[in-house]
């Protein structure tokens, strides 16, 4: 009985502690979400938050801002293209790495994993020089390609476990029937690994969606993506906090929706280096 009471007290204390931690962790997020509904002038004047201030004015300004909307569209396009490219190419490579026997297989898999973890800062300067020489700087193609540099290794890493679980009897049966390797990949592996493809695609999209440094250096007015456009709302004499918060909220919606919907795969997805700008 006394033990049970003690346990109850501990659990209650833990719950209180958890709520306190939660308050701290969610506070900055709440700030962003709330201030998107206030006018810049109200924020800058330092007024206390009150319900009367709530307005869609900052959102209206964001949606009327043609450069920002162009950047959002670019972000969607680059995200989709880079996701399609890396999932396509990455699925093939993951299949090649899991269902064949060949020398150097481990070394190759290792290097794909190591590649995922290289700092973007180490690559961006030479990518800038290369892209400028070839003439693909500030193009959707260029930034898509740059985003594939982290998404391809990422997708491979995500998909390997999904391909290894496929039962070999399917392959053996297919081989007996004279099915080619390409046929096996297309008819057996892609359908069976479909959940994995979806998970990898979602995270690849978010990787691209959040990316900042490549977009900052490798794009200009034409192919600029949303994170760079949003960051330009603040700095120097421009302090449009309300618009910044509104635009950020728009950016956050797909990320939060996807990640809450993907609870089961979050740990693998994040540990692989997802959600990093």
């Amino acid at each position: 009985m006394r033990l049970a009471t003690r346990k109850k007290i501990i659990t209650a204390a833990v719950a209180v502690f958890a709520l306190a931690v939660l308050a701290v962790e969610l506070y900055p997020i709440a700030i962003t979400l709330l201030n998107g509904f206030r006018r810049d002038i109200v924020i800058l004047s330092g007024q206390k938050l009150s319900l009367k201030q709530f307005t869609g004015a900052s959102y209206a300004l964001v949606f009327e801002n043609r450069q920002l909307m162009q950047a959002m569209r670019n972000s969607v396009v680059v995200g989709l293209l880079s996701t399609a490219l890396s999932v396509g190419v990455g699925a093939m490579a993951a299949y090649g790495l899991t269902r064949f026997k060949f020398r150097g297989k481990n070394a190759l898999a290792y290097s794909f994993l190591v590649f995922r973890m290289l700092p973007q800062m180490s690559l961006v300067v030479s990518l800038y020089l290369m892209f400028r020489t070839v003439g693909i700087r500030d193009t959707i193609f260029g930034i898509t390609l740059a985003h594939s540099s982290f998404n391809v290794p990422y997708v491979i890493w995500m998909l390997i476990p999904f391909f290894t679980v496929v039962d070999k009897s399917y392959e053996e049966a297919a081989m007996v029937d004279g099915c080619s390797r390409w046929g096996m990949f297309r008819l057996i592996f892609l359908p069976l690994a479909a959940p994995g493809l979806v998970v990898a695609a979602v995270f690849a999209f978010i990787n691209s969606w959040n990316e900042f440094l490549y977009a900052l250096i490798l794009t200009g007015v034409n192919a600029r993506t949303a994170p760079v456009a949003i960051s330009s709302l603040i700095g120097g004499d421009t302090l449009t906090w309300g618009q910044m918060c509104a635009a950020s909220t728009v950016m956050l919606i797909p990320v939060f929706v996807f990640t809450i919907g993907m609870q089961k795969f979050l740990i693998r997805g994040v540990a692989a280096g997802g959600v990093k700008g």
Partner: peptide
């Protein structure tokens, strides 16, 4: 508690 991890770094 995990939400901050998914907060965009620049945001």
């Amino acid at each position: 508690i995990l939400l901050p991890v998914f907060f965009l770094p620049i945001v």
